[in-house]
Design a binder for these strands. Sequence first.
DNA 1: CACCCGATTATCT
DNA 2: GATAATCGGGTGT
Length: 204
Amino acid sequence: MPNNAIKVTQLKPLSRNFFARPTVTVAHDLLGKLVVRIFDDGSYAAGMIVETEAYTGLEDPASHAYRGNTARVRAMFEEPGHAYIYFIYGMYYCLNAVAKGEEQKAGGVLIRALEPVMGIERMQQESSGHTPHKLTNGPGKLTRALHINRTLYGTDLTRKGPLYICEFETISEKNIMAGPRVGISKAIEHHWRFYIKDNPCVSR
DNA sequence: CACCCGATTATCT
DNA sequence: GATAATCGGGTGT
């Protein structure tokens, strides 16, 4: 079935339990899921997750939550399955899904790249001058293409609304790669970045 | 292709 | 006052 025949209304959001597991497990399992963005005017766009990173909270020196709960990181200490969105380098937003096991106080999965699936023209309205596979091949680029900003902080990603994540494709284990996280200098020994092998939308 | 750097601002020290 | 889970454009090899 071609992608343009998929109806967004038929897609099933992930369950709360999906996110209520260890952050690293959720980061791995989010590959192949679909991020759906419904705009205020009723138009929509969506992309398949092809790259993620796990940030495990209080025990992870690279995590924004490492130094404890603050107004900025509040969402990462609250219920799994909600959006933790942060503003960085004075101009980019990045999207995380709050994910943590019972033992964890905080944790989030950074969505680093998507493969556009629906609403590519709508994404190009937000990010002009990009070929489709370059619209969402980075954490700051996918939020621009999907018009994700502070107003969506804390959004429940398990319920149909302006932003949610659905079941979509199952990725074969042999096509899932792991490596060190990008853009950090601490805890580089952890291979908590996951991506789909040979996918052109992976950020690097 | 490999580095290098500037943009621009919320957040925390 | 320094920093930052980025990006895109520039220069040199």
